[in-house]
Nucleic acid binder design. Structure first.
Lengths: 242, 242
DNA sequence: CGAGGGCTTGAGTCCAGTCAATTACTGTGG
DNA sequence: CCACAGTAATTGACTGGACTCAAGCCCTCG
């Protein structure tokens, strides 16, 4: 996996800041309302233990016991499902600030792999459930987090079911612009490969490549580097996304 | 919308049984673990008010205030999203026993319409939240319900992104066999139109029709009536579903 | 018994997939 | 520091599965 040093640097962990989750810059982007802030105030940060995952390593295997909740502290991971004959689908990309690993069942229905060197905070299921029992506010915040996940998943369903290649890529770029941009809103790193994007959007890497080239030729985006996107005309991109 | 009288009868409400949700036969199929039983025992049934929705009528409009939780008592409804140019996607079909209408945001991101004459029980959001605050068990059960929803949504993402027409239809039929079969496991009514199925599976009604004909020719299913499916060879159907 | 809507089936088209060749990077080892 | 190897990304030519358009059928209802 080829990756310039600058990206590595951006996704490198600052271990000293991990226990105080609020210190992470991604905290301010509020993935689903203001849930993370509530979690922090509810004392979740004292329950977690830090974990480093190197690029392409598997954090959770399919079928693993689903005994922990996780939060991405730095880096980027992918949630992967594979069909019997090898067709792959990436359920979602996990970026800094995202929670994952919670599940109703006892086992994990997907694998979680690191796209770049990453750090996650792991919370024991028991600890979180205890917290919820003691503090109804924390429970309600977890609910609101899940509502957000659910509506995201439904949005992706719509895209996969009814949108064209250009519309999917445009929507995806807008989404990633929100999730990735740390300094400038319209210029960001895209850590995952074209194949990863394809497996997320239900297309092939060739089509992803062609589609992004098309948007570049139309002056809607610029690609100064394979893994760096600049949005030149946000309105046009939104129009393309439908 | 053409619909034989027998289906009407099956989906007609038994109002006397509605307040005691446990009495409904669909209760036993446990859509996501044993959540409904917990809800019942937690006293949710005293909070609800019954509501009848006639076929093709809209229960919730896009953008309506999301002030209530609902449960399908009888009938079948669809959760619909529409793109600007009219492309339609059915996020999910709501069958007897399904909960819906909960959402993190203040407004509804989809419309809910009745496929056949249906009855739903409506719970005030405030009442449910109060119940959760008083009873942590109820809260945890709602969580487990949401986990189930989420994993269903992810399953559908996989299907929409990576499965072929036959695989989608086969998976859908297996799903519906679980959700619809009241008397015999492998023979059930399919209340929705081919167009509804198409908009759920990301295809056209022509392709749905062709695909079901193909499965019928292969002796995997039988279609004694347009809205009645009999599974002749469940193993083959599962193989087709991948 | 006719009208209308949903369903089915057929013929032709097109968007995205497949296969293949080339280019661009990056990381490795001399 | 440079040459090389291996992988990812891009681009082109061709193919194919699902879509579009269109006609006919079937059922239901007025």
């Amino acid at each position: 996996m080829a990756m310039p040093a600058s990206i590595e640097a951006r996704y490198s962990p600052r271990v000293g800041a991990l226990l105080n989750l609020a210190a992470h810059p991604a905290e301010s982007r509020a993935p689903s309302g203001n849930a993370p802030i509530a979690w922090r105030s509810a004392g979740l940060d004292r329950l977690g233990s830090t974990l480093a995952v190197r690029r392409d390593r598997v954090l959770l295997h399919l079928g693993d016991e689903a005994g922990h909740y996780h939060k991405v502290a730095s880096g980027a991971l992918r949630m992967v499902r594979v069909l019997a004959d090898g067709r792959r689908h990436i359920v979602k990309f996990l970026m800094a600030g995202d929670f994952f690993g919670f599940s109703g069942s006892q086992t994990c229905a997907y694998a979680v792999e690191a796209i770049v060197d990453s750090t996650v905070v792991r919370y024991s299921r028991r600890g979180v459930e205890g917290l919820i029992d003691r503090d109804p506010v924390a429970g309600r915040r977890l609910l609101s987090l899940l509502f957000g996940e659910l509506s995201d998943a439904q949005e992706r369903q719509l895209a996969l079911g009814r949108k064209t290649a250009v519309e999917r890529v445009a929507s995806f770029l807008l989404q990633m612009a929100d999730a990735c941009s740390c300094w400038r809103r319209d210029s960001f790193e895209l850590p995952m490969s074209r194949t990863d994007i394809a497996d997320h959007l239900g297309m092939t890497c060739e089509t992803v490549s062609r589609t992004m080239a098309q948007l570049r030729r139309a002056q809607v985006i610029d690609l100064p580097h394979v893994h760096h996107v600049t949005i030149l005309d946000r309105c046009a991109l939104e129009r393309h996304a439908n």
